[in-house]
């Protein structure tokens, strides 16, 4: 069952993205940034987490989840440590993704060359 919801919800995220790519004059960069901001907004009111509970990887793999994780980290730390938590919690939950992106990209770029 969780495979089906992951497939459908993840697919719907991508379908929405494709429609935005094709129907708006914005670049992919604009639209993906929009997904992150939207994920952050939905995360701040707690909606995104419910979506993850429902769809698992279908909601945690689309890039909107990155915005949600940033917000969640901030809100958790702010609750515990007050205002400074807004800064200290920023990368609490996203550090693994960012670190993985940097490290893998670095070594893969060392090994391979662009093929054009």
């Amino acid at each position: 069952m969780d495979y089906l919801t992951a497939f459908v919800v993840g697919g719907l995220f991508c379908l929405l993205g494709q429609l935005l790519f094709d129907l708006t004059p914005f670049s992919p960069g604009h639209i993906l940034a929009g997904f992150v901001v939207a994920g952050g907004v939905l995360g701040s009111v707690g909606v995104y987490d419910r979506l993850i509970e429902f769809a698992g990887a279908g909601a945690s793999l689309p890039i909107a989840s990155f915005g949600n994780s940033l917000v969640k980290g901030v809100l958790l730390e702010a609750e515990r440590h007050g205002l400074i938590g807004v800064l200290t919690g920023m990368f609490e939950l996203t550090s693994s993704g960012i670190a993985a992106g940097i490290v893998f990209s670095f070594f893969i770029a060392l090994i391979f060359n662009p093929r054009g």
Partner: peptide, 10 residues
């Protein structure tokens, strides 16, 4: 874009 960047060309 970088040559290995993936996007759908219109």
């Amino acid at each position: 874009y970088p040559t290995e960047y993936g996007f759908k060309r219109p």
